[in-house]
Amino acid sequence: MCPPEHFTVDYAINPWMDTSVPVDSGLALKQWAILRDTLTDLGHAVHVIDAKPELPDMVYAANGAFSVDGTVYGARFRYPQRVGEAAEHRKFYESTVNWTTKQGDSVNEGEGDFAYLPAAYGGMILAGHGFRTEPAAHLEAQEILGRPVISLQLVDPAFYHLDTALAALDDRHITYYPEAFSEASRRVLRQLFPDAVIADRGDAEAFGLNLVSDGRHVILNTEARAMGEKVRAHGYQPVHVELGELKRGGGSVKCVVAELRG
C-alpha cells in the first residue's frame, strides 16, 4: 500500500475523476489508514511504500505490478502522469521482498487488469483489455509468469480496469458484472465460472467489485452494501470500509492494495 499523502484530482484520466472538486487530503489519509488497519486486524501483513509528491495516483498501488509465485510483471502505464510509478514499485519488489521483476514492452497496469486464481485449472490469470492494458501484454504476462492467460475485453469506459468489473473471491471463484464485458468475453466467463457471483450495475458503480478477498473475508467499501449481501449469501464475510474520498480518483479497496504472491 502507498499512503495518499499527495493524492489530488488535478487531471482526469478516467470517467470518475472530477477536477472541479478539491480533494480532502486529511479525510483520504484517514480512510486509507482505516483500510490498512482493517487488513492487519484480519491477520495480513501490510508493506507501505513511500508516496512521491510528483505522483498523486501512487495510492492506487495495485496498478504498479502483478506478481505470481515471486515473479513480478512490472507495469508500463498508459498515461504520462503515472509513468513514474512503475519504477517505485519495481524498487520495492527488488529491494524489500527480493523478488524477480521482469518488464515487458506492452502497456499494462498491473493488478488493475490482471487477476489470479491459483486453484482454477492449475493456476489461471484473467486479464482485461480495452481501455488501459494492451492485448499484447496478456501474452507477455503468460510468458513471464508461466500461467495460462484468459483475455477479456472491457467495453464500458466506466469500468476501465478489470478490477472495477471482476474480482477473485477465493482460489477458484469470482464475482463479476457481465455488461462490462463484450458478449464473447461474457460467454467465456459463463463457461469457466458457472457458479460466479453475478453483480449488477449498481454494485459496479458503487465499486463493489473493487474488493479484496482472502477467501473468507471480503473487504469492500461501505457504499457497496448490496454487493456485501451477495457475497454473504455465498458464504463469505463482508467487511465494509469507507473509501469515498479515494473513489473520487476512480478506485476503491482493490485499487489501493497490491496483493503479494510469493
Rank of each mutant, 00 (worst) to 15 (best):
L42W: 10
F7W: 02
N98S: 15
F159K: 14
N63L: 00
Y79E: 02
L162T: 07
T222S: 12
A136S: 13
R172A: 15
F7R: 03
S20Q: 04
I144E: 11
V197A: 15
D200R: 11
T100Y: 14
L166T: 06
L39P: 09
S185C: 08
F92R: 07
D170N: 10
L209N: 09
G70Y: 01
T40M: 05
E245A: 03
K91P: 15
I150H: 05
L35T: 05
V83N: 12
D105L: 11
D37R: 11
W16V: 02
H240L: 06
G122D: 11
P178Q: 14
V21E: 03
R172F: 09
M124Y: 01
L162V: 00
T164I: 05
K91C: 13
A127M: 09
P148V: 08
H240C: 03
Y177F: 11
Q191V: 15
T175K: 08
Y236Q: 03
R132S: 07
Y73I: 04
V23H: 04
G43D: 01
V21S: 10
M124D: 02
F181E: 14
A199L: 14
I144T: 07
V46Y: 13
N98V: 14
L192D: 11
Q237R: 10
R172W: 13
Q153L: 06
T133S: 07
H240I: 00
Y11N: 10
R216Y: 13
A45R: 15
V59C: 04
A61S: 08
G235L: 04
A120V: 13
V197W: 11
E229Y: 13
K52P: 12
G251N: 00
L220A: 03
A165W: 00
G128N: 03
M1K: 03
Y11L: 12
D50W: 08
G262L: 09
A167E: 08
Y177A: 12
A226N: 10
A258T: 03
Q103V: 09
R90D: 01
P148K: 02
P80V: 13
I219M: 11
T38N: 07
A158Y: 13
G110D: 05
L35M: 07
L145V: 04
F207T: 10
E205Y: 12
Q31A: 01
M227R: 04
F114D: 06
C2S: 09
D170W: 02
G215L: 11
V257E: 03
L211S: 06
D69C: 09
T96Q: 15
L42N: 08
Q103E: 12
T38C: 10
E259Q: 07
D10P: 08
T71I: 01
V218H: 02
Q191H: 15
S67W: 11
L35D: 04
E94G: 12
L152R: 05
E205T: 15
Y79F: 09
T40S: 03
D24K: 05
W99T: 14
L260I: 06
A87C: 14
F159P: 15
